[in-house]
């Protein structure tokens, strides 16, 4: 079997956005990791390293579909082909299409809880969490109250519309979240520019960290 040219190891949370670009048709191998690993950055790092080392034997270029993700990518050792990582803090910059857009949104309205279709599909929006996780763990009465307390500091709930899936349904769901938790609703249009860059390049130094063969990834590479 010949080596594939490019392999992307990405967070499963962004599968829809990657698949829309038909990476397979372009000879790109996709590996999706379970989402929610960012919650435990040490585990994320370990699992990523295992996957990187495994795919390194059969590919020429490895690109991660991850950002700094609470330091989950810090400490990774690049294989002999090196490692390319989007220079972003987390997936929200990817959904929005650029670091600048994220930064601007962020400075205008830090109190925004962003929702994407994926968070909602996986019931990780506040309503979904209450219904499918908090109720089971805490009982119906405390579930709701706990969520209200958790997001008490937030003024807005946004729907980042990446144009994938049934957008109308997701918008309504995000709206419902905002209504029930007394937040202002905001819709942000997603942009697949960053996803395209990850898949097709160019992996310019402004937007990507290039870790040299056998070197270790450091936090400062992402902050500069």
């Amino acid at each position: 079997m010949s080596k594939s040219q490019k392999t992307i190891i990405a967070c499963g949370g962004m599968k829809a956005e990657f698949e829309r670009l038909n990476p397979a048709d372009n000879g790109i191998e996709m590996h999706y990791m379970p989402q929610n690993l960012h919650r435990v950055p040490d585990t994320l790092r370990k699992k990523l390293q295992e996957t990187i080392d495994r795919v390194a034997e059969d590919t020429e270029t490895i690109i991660l579909g991850y950002g700094l993700c609470c330091n989950g990518v810090v400490g990774l050792k690049a294989p002999e082909q090196g490692l390319i990582v989007p220079k972003v803090h987390d997936c929200i910059a990817l959904y929005m299409g650029s670091t600048e857009k994220y930064r601007n949104m962020f400075s205008q309205n830090p109190g925004t809880y962003h929702l994407t279709r994926n968070w909602m599909d996986n019931k990780k929006d506040p309503l979904g969490l209450v219904e499918h996780e908090y109720k089971r763990r805490l009982g119906a009465e405390d579930a709701r109250e706990t969520m209200e307390w958790e997001i008490k500091n937030y003024s807005h709930i946004s729907y980042i519309n990446t144009g994938t899936g049934r957008t109308e349904q997701y918008r309504n769901r995000a709206l419902e979240n905002a209504r029930q938790f007394n937040k202002q609703f905001m819709e942000i249009s997603g942009d697949d520019a960053f996803f395209r860059k990850i898949v097709h390049g160019p992996w310019d130094k402004k937007n990507f960290v290039h870790i040299k063969p056998h070197e270790i990834s450091k936090q400062e590479y992402f902050l500069k």
């Binding site: 585990t43 996780e133 908090y134 763990r137 805490l138 405390d142 579930a143 706990t146 307390w149 958790e150």
Partner: peptide
């Protein structure tokens, strides 16, 4: 250690 999840931590904090 990932043995406790957010909702429980929130209850304890509260």
């Amino acid at each position: 250690n990932g043995e406790m999840f957010m909702p429980e931590v929130l209850r304890c904090a509260k």
